[in-house]
Design a protein around this nucleic acid. Structure first.
Lengths: 205, 205
DNA sequence: TAGATTGTTAATCGATTAACAATC
DNA sequence: TAGATTGTTAATCGATTAACAATC
């Protein structure tokens, strides 16, 4: 069902969702034109993207905002329940563990792992930090399909390999290195420093 | 000089740089083919991307690794010196302030701002946290052209407006909301929760 | 020289936009 | 009805890939 949407369209769905949720409660209808204007994009593109979900607009009035939000949430799996684990309870790991925004998407980070014995056994934002060796059993027990990697670059690949072996199906990688996995596993990469560097590069043009 | 590179190519340059830096010191030459194989992409694309920099390969041998790294670093401004400020010293803000990876790109976060009086006056990773009201004078004094927004979504737009008024030219926004600015200002958006949600969506396909 | 690899031009592919018929 | 907006098909645009000449 989610198979044929281009990733580039999929990436825009949360943007629409955020925009719609931020709208005044009084607004009942939204048109692709108004969304496009607010988000600085073409209105046909908005309609095409929305068409991947179950959203249906009505000529002359547009989309019912609540229905559109529901369609996007449904498509993105916000009403489901998926568990994620996090590896690397450093500053960034702690921030991600403390972040409350995942629940909007039906995702919960249920456990963390760290190789530092000092951290093992502690709790961060109510989530237990376990030793790396416990990963296999915990991931299995908690049925976690998602994982977030917040370890230093040099460990990212081995951590990814371990996670995949434990049954993780998708990885969000914050380490500044490209990790390779079995092609069935989906990986996304967020390199914070590189993002700032890209911005910096765009300044001189 | 950096004007005519497509953003999509620019985004790949740090990926090449990370890969090359991670290579064994003994490797003197690298070919576009070997980079492409390691990074799972087409070799012509690699050569095209690298051609935007001052890198020059030699037929039959490839690129001199050290020269290629230097060309990428030069293009990305890693040898320059740019200052950034951060707004919102919550968990994520702290993590970004503590992150050491920016210096590889010639970027330093020089100050933070927060509206919480409890945080004002403290130091995080050696960086002073100032009151929001000091932003204008500090940004000017420190000559900061880059800014990172780590405040809750509902404040992101006003913070962005304030930053732009203070002379900030580029913004990295972690708040889950699209911010609008004068078109001269460049903005990049990192929505961590959305990224995990996208991964989750890709699982069911 | 022979052959591997670069750099470039042409072809292809995919995403965005334009045009327009359908419709409430 | 008239007109605004959707949904879809065709055209355009831009990025990737294929082909190939240049070259060390």
């Amino acid at each position: 069902m989610n198979k044929d949407i281009p990733v580039i369209s999929l990436q825009r769905l949360p943007v629409y969702l955020n925009y719609l949720k931020g709208l005044n409660d009084g607004e009942v209808y939204v048109s692709s034109g108004s969304i496009a204007a607010a988000l600085d994009m073409g209105e046909v593109l908005v309609r095409k993207d929305l068409a991947y979900t179950s959203a249906a607009g009505r000529p002359r009035v547009g989309y019912v905002k609540s229905e559109l939000i529901a369609a996007l949430e449904d498509y993105l799996g916000c009403n489901g329940k998926r568990s994620a684990v996090l590896v690397g309870a450093g500053a960034l790991g702690k921030a991600v563990l403390s972040y409350g925004g995942f629940k909007n998407y039906g995702i919960e980070i249920v456990a963390a792992f760290d190789s530092d014995p000092e951290k093992v056994g502690t709790e961060i934002a109510g989530k237990k930090v376990h030793a790396m060796g416990e990963a296999a059993s915990k991931i299995n027990e908690l049925n976690a399909e998602l994982a977030v990697i917040c370890v230093p670059a040099q460990y990212a690949q081995e951590v990814a390999d371990m996670l995949v072996k434990c049954g993780v199906k998708a990885i969000l990688n914050f380490a500044p290195v490209l990790i390779k996995t079995d092609e069935k596993v989906v990986v996304r990469h967020i390199d914070v420093a590189a993002n700032l560097a890209i911005l910096s590069s765009m300044l001189e043009g």
